[in-house]
Deep mutational scan, measured.
Amino acid sequence: NRLGIIYEIQGMKAVVLTSEGEFLIIRRRKDMKVGQQVSFENEDIYNV
Rank of each mutant, 00 (worst) to 15 (best):
N1A: 11
E41G: 11
F40E: 01
G35E: 02
G4V: 02
R2H: 05
F40R: 01
V16C: 05
A14D: 00
D31T: 15
K30N: 15
I45Q: 04
I26G: 00
T18W: 04
E43W: 04
I6F: 00
I5S: 03
K30R: 14
S39Y: 12
Q10N: 09
Q37I: 11
V16S: 00
T18I: 04
Q10C: 14
S39P: 05
I25N: 05
Q36L: 07
V38M: 04
V34A: 05
D31M: 14
L17P: 00
E22V: 14
N42Q: 10
V48K: 09
I6W: 00
T18S: 08
E43N: 07
E20P: 04
V34S: 02
N42R: 08
E41T: 13
Q10H: 15
V34N: 03
S39N: 13
L17G: 02
E8L: 13
V38G: 01
Y46L: 15
L17R: 08
V15K: 13
L17A: 03
L24A: 06
K30M: 15
E41N: 10
E20T: 14
Q36M: 14
Y46F: 13
N42D: 12
I45N: 03
Q36C: 13
D44L: 03
E43L: 03
R29C: 08
L24R: 04
I6R: 00
D31N: 08
V34H: 04
V48T: 12
I25H: 07
E22R: 13
V48S: 13
I25L: 15
F40M: 08
L24C: 06
Y7N: 05
G35S: 03
F23A: 04
E41M: 13
K33N: 08
E8F: 14
K33M: 08
I6M: 01
E43I: 03
G21Q: 04
R27F: 14
N1I: 15
F40G: 01
V15I: 11
N42W: 13
K13Q: 06
M12C: 15
V16R: 00
R29L: 08
V16L: 04
F40Y: 08
K33H: 08
M32F: 11
I5C: 07
I26M: 04
I25R: 08
G35C: 12
G21N: 08
E8N: 10
G35Q: 03
L3G: 10
K30Y: 11
E43K: 11
G35W: 06
E8R: 15
D44S: 02
R2F: 09
L3S: 11
S39A: 10
L3C: 06
F23I: 11
V16T: 02
L24Q: 05
V48L: 06
E41R: 15
G11R: 09
Y7C: 11
T18K: 01
Q10E: 11
G21P: 01
G21V: 01
Q37E: 15
V16D: 00
I6A: 01
R29Y: 12
V48Y: 04
L24N: 02
R28C: 14
E8H: 14
N47I: 11
L17V: 08
T18L: 04
N47L: 06
I26W: 01
V15A: 06
G35P: 01
V16Y: 00
K13H: 13
V38W: 14
L24P: 00
N47Q: 10
N42K: 08
E43H: 05
D31R: 12
I45E: 06
N47K: 04
I45W: 07
V38N: 01
D31A: 12
I26K: 00
Q36V: 09
E20C: 12
M12N: 13
Y46I: 12
V34Y: 05
Y46P: 05
L3P: 02
I5Q: 05
G35R: 04
L24K: 04
L17T: 04
F23S: 05
E20H: 12
G11C: 15
I25C: 15
R27H: 03
D31E: 13
D31S: 15
R29M: 06
N47A: 06
L24G: 01
I9H: 01
K30F: 10
I45A: 06
G35H: 06
K30E: 15
I5R: 11
I5D: 02
I25D: 03
G21C: 12
E43M: 03
T18H: 01
I45P: 03
Q36N: 10
A14W: 06
G11V: 06
F40V: 03
I5E: 03
I5N: 03
K30D: 13
D44V: 02
S39K: 11
Y46N: 06
S39H: 13
E41I: 11
R28T: 13
D44G: 02
V38S: 03
I5A: 04
M32N: 02
Y7G: 02
V48H: 12
F23R: 05
L3Y: 14
Y46V: 11
G35L: 04
V38L: 07
Q10P: 01
G11H: 07
R2C: 10
V34Q: 06
G4D: 01
N1C: 14
I26Y: 00
V16W: 00
M32H: 14
R28N: 07
I9Y: 03
I6L: 04
N42P: 07
N42C: 11
V15Y: 15
Q37Y: 08
E20N: 10
I9E: 01
Q36R: 09
E43P: 02
V15N: 04
G21I: 02
Y7I: 13
S39G: 04
G21T: 02
G11W: 10
G11Q: 09
R2V: 04
M12Y: 15
E8W: 15
Q37S: 11
E41Y: 09
M32G: 02
E41V: 07
S19K: 14
R28D: 02
Q36F: 11
I25A: 09
N1M: 14
G21S: 06
Q37R: 10
K30L: 15
E20K: 08
V34D: 02
R2K: 10
E20F: 09
M12D: 15
V38R: 02
S19F: 12
R28F: 15
V16I: 08
I26V: 05
A14Q: 01
N1S: 10
V34E: 04
V48Q: 14
V34K: 12
G4N: 02
N1D: 09
E8M: 12
N42E: 14
D31I: 05
V16H: 00
D31K: 14
V48P: 15
G35I: 00
M32Y: 15
I45M: 04
R28H: 12
R28A: 04
I25Q: 07
V16A: 02
V34F: 04
N1E: 11
T18Y: 02
G4A: 06
I25V: 12
M32V: 05
Q37K: 09
V15S: 09
Q36D: 07
D31W: 12
A14I: 08
R2L: 10
G11D: 09
R27P: 03
M32K: 01
E22N: 10
Y46A: 10
I5L: 09
E22M: 14
T18E: 02
A14M: 10
V16F: 01
G21E: 03
I26T: 01
G4E: 01
L24E: 02
S19W: 07
L24V: 09
F40T: 03
K30G: 15
L3Q: 06
M32C: 04
M32A: 07
V34T: 05
A14E: 00
N1H: 12
E43S: 06
E22I: 14
V48M: 09
E43V: 03
I9C: 05
G21L: 04
Y46Q: 12
D31Q: 14
A14C: 10
F23D: 01
Y7T: 07
S19E: 08
D31L: 12
S39L: 08
V38F: 05
K33R: 12
I26E: 00
K13C: 14
E43G: 05
Q37M: 14
R2M: 09
V16N: 00
R2W: 10
G4F: 03
I9M: 12
Y46M: 11
S39W: 08
R28S: 14
L24Y: 09
E20I: 09
V34R: 05
F40K: 01
I6K: 00
R28Y: 15
K13D: 04
I5F: 10
Q37V: 13
Q10S: 15
Y7W: 14
D44M: 02
R2Q: 06
L3D: 08
G11K: 08
K30V: 15
V34W: 05
F23N: 02
S19I: 10
I26F: 01
R28V: 14
V38Q: 02
L24S: 03
F40H: 01
Y46C: 15
E20V: 08
E41D: 11
N42S: 11
V16M: 03
L17Q: 07
D44A: 02
Q37F: 10
I9Q: 02
Q36S: 09
I5V: 12
R27C: 12
D44P: 10
G4Q: 01
S19D: 10
G21K: 07
I45G: 05
M12E: 15
R2S: 06
E22T: 13
K13S: 07
L3R: 11
M32W: 15
G21H: 03
G11Y: 08
L17D: 00
K30C: 15
R29V: 05
K30S: 15
N47H: 13
R2N: 06
Y7S: 04
V34P: 05
N1V: 13
E22H: 12
D44K: 02
Q36W: 07
I6H: 00
M32Q: 07
Y46D: 11
G35T: 02
E41A: 13
S19L: 11
N47C: 15
V48N: 14
A14Y: 11
Y7F: 07
Q10K: 12
Q37N: 09
D44W: 03
Q10D: 11
I9R: 01
S39R: 08
E8K: 13
S19Y: 10
I9W: 03
D44C: 08
L17S: 04
V38Y: 11
I45T: 02
I6D: 00
K13P: 00
Q37G: 06
G4P: 01
V38C: 08
R29W: 09
R2D: 02
I26L: 11
K33P: 01
F40P: 02
G11I: 05
K13N: 09
V15E: 02
R2Y: 11
T18N: 03
E8P: 00
G4S: 02
G21F: 05
Q10L: 06
F40D: 01
R27K: 08
Y7D: 02
I9T: 04
K30T: 13
N47V: 13
